[in-house]
Design a protein around this nucleic acid. Sequence first.
DNA 1: TCAGTGATTAGG
DNA 2: CTAATCACTGAG
Length: 171
Amino acid sequence: MQGKKRLTRDFYIRDVLIVAPELIGKALVVRSGIKACRKYIITETEAYRGIEDKACHASRGRTERTDVMFLQGGKVYVYFVYGMYWMLNIVTGEENNPQAALIRSVEGFDGPGKLTRAIGIDKSFYGEDLTLSDRMWIEDSEISPVIKTGQRIGIDYAGEFWKTRQWRYYI
DNA sequence: TCAGTGATTAGG
DNA sequence: CTAATCACTGAG
């Protein structure tokens, strides 16, 4: 089950502004329900960075929902929004430096809500450790895509400064 | 452009 | 307990 190319802790504990763009082109491996493992190439991510980032959920403190972001990088942060959609995030950085990379799209499934619905991500993945789990991890790939950047989507509430950070990465 | 949808959160 | 909010999507 352990993939040869599985990314290790060292990859995740770096700053989210490094990890989020590096996730582009990597392979997300998931086994949900009774289905066999499937691989999805990550094509779009966004960085959420620390308590000072008004768009980051952790900026409003450590709560039951945001708790996992305060742990060492390499874990999964999943939350429910708009009454319908699960969002999939990868926790990055060191302990007590809450950061996460939102997986917005993978090859074949464009949009964070649509992709989690399609590949079967829900609350049960909250806190999953990508370096240990037998149902979700990320593998390195030979792909070196050209990465574009832009503003993060859907965070008008965060104010002009945080809204205009170029922290969205995509192919 | 705008409503649906319900977990999460802050505040009595 | 209540009410506001929301890292989205699909229909029009």
